[in-house]
Each structure stands twice: as structure tokens, then as C-alpha cells.
Computed example of a mutant assay.
Amino acid sequence: MHKPNSKKNFVQEVAATLPPGVAPEQVDIWFQDEMRIGQRGTQTRLWARKGTRPRVVRQQQSESAYIFGAVCPRQDSAIGLVMPHANTEAMSHHLQVLSEAVPAGRHAVLVLDRAGWHT
């Protein structure tokens, strides 16, 4: 994984990392991110007689999933996946789907945020 020094040098950094024979005009820039969504139990309320304090079991577990998404403004294209975990396997699947979205004869540069698990 390559980290550009600054936004100003981005085009030069990308051009310097391209394989021989690949022109910058053949490259699409994709922007990727992921996020966790889910549900967590909340405060339980119920009707009761004044002066009583009924006991109620409250949902303690949580359910969540991860949304992986990427967009390419130049191609007006986007992909998205809902995955049960954010890990290497999920990211590999995301990259596979992304590679299938890149048109034949084109190449993709994927811009990631600097989340710790990306490295």
C-alpha cells in the first residue's frame, strides 16, 4: 500500500507507481470506505400502576453489519456490499467485486482512508 505525501502530488505519485505501458488516461480513481451499522437495545419503558416498579428484561445483545462501498466519479459507477465483519476476507471480497466493475482496458487506483486495519 502506498501513501501519497500530499494531495498536491497525487497525480505524480499515481503516475510513478503505474506499471510500464499503462498511461494515466487509462486509470480511474475509486474512493472506498466502510462503516458499521446496527441495532443496540434501548431503555425499556412500560405502563404500570403509579408507585410500582415492575422489572422487565431488556434486550442486551446487539446486531450489526458492515457496508463496504466504492465510487468512481469519472465512470459514474459505484459498488456496495453488506458484510457480517470488517476483516481481510471481507475486504478481499470487496476488492474482487471492485475489479469486476472496472471496464476492460482500464485500471483502477483505490483511495482508502487511513484506518488502522487497512494497513
Rank of each mutant, 00 (worst) to 15 (best):
R40S: 14
Q12Y: 12
P73A: 11
P4A: 03
C72P: 05
E63I: 05
P84H: 04
K8E: 15
Q32H: 14
P73T: 08
Q60W: 08
S62L: 04
V14K: 00
T17Y: 12
Q32K: 09
M91T: 11
E100K: 07
A115G: 11
Y66I: 13
V111N: 10
P20E: 13
Q60K: 09
A115L: 15
M91V: 14
W30I: 01
M1Q: 09
A115T: 13
A65G: 08
M1W: 03
L81T: 04
R106M: 12
Q61A: 11
V82E: 12
R53Q: 14
A101T: 03
W47R: 04
V102A: 04
S6F: 08
R114S: 15
A23Y: 07
G105F: 06
S77I: 00
I79N: 11
S64T: 00
V111W: 10
V57I: 10
A78C: 14
L18T: 07
Q96W: 02
G21S: 07
R36P: 11
R114I: 05
H2L: 04
N5A: 04
K7Q: 08
D76E: 15
I29N: 07
L81F: 04
M91D: 06
K8T: 14
Q26C: 13
G51P: 00
L98G: 05
L98H: 06
L81N: 03
L18D: 01
T119Y: 06
L95C: 08
D76V: 11
Q96L: 12
P84A: 05
A16L: 03
V22D: 07
V71Y: 00
T17F: 04
A15M: 08
K7M: 05
T44C: 13
R45F: 14
R74P: 13
V109N: 06
K3F: 06
Q61D: 07
A15I: 04
Q43T: 05
E89G: 07
V56I: 12
I37D: 15
W30A: 01
G51Y: 01
P19I: 02
A15F: 02
E34R: 05
G51F: 01
N9W: 10
Q43G: 00
P20N: 10
L112P: 13
F68I: 03
V97E: 09
V97P: 09
G69W: 06
Q43W: 06
R106N: 07
N9A: 07
A48C: 04
H107F: 14
S92R: 13
Q59V: 14
Q75F: 01
M1S: 13
P4S: 01
V111E: 06
F68G: 07
D76Q: 15
M83H: 02
A108C: 08
R74Q: 14
W47V: 04
K3T: 10
V71H: 00
P84T: 06
L18R: 02
T119E: 11
E63T: 11
Q75L: 15
A115W: 09
I29H: 00
M1F: 09
V109P: 10
S99D: 08
E100L: 09
V109I: 14
A108L: 01
Q59E: 09
V14S: 02
A70Y: 04
D28C: 12
Q26G: 12
Q75S: 15
L112T: 12
K8S: 14
L110R: 11
G116A: 08
V56A: 08
A23S: 15
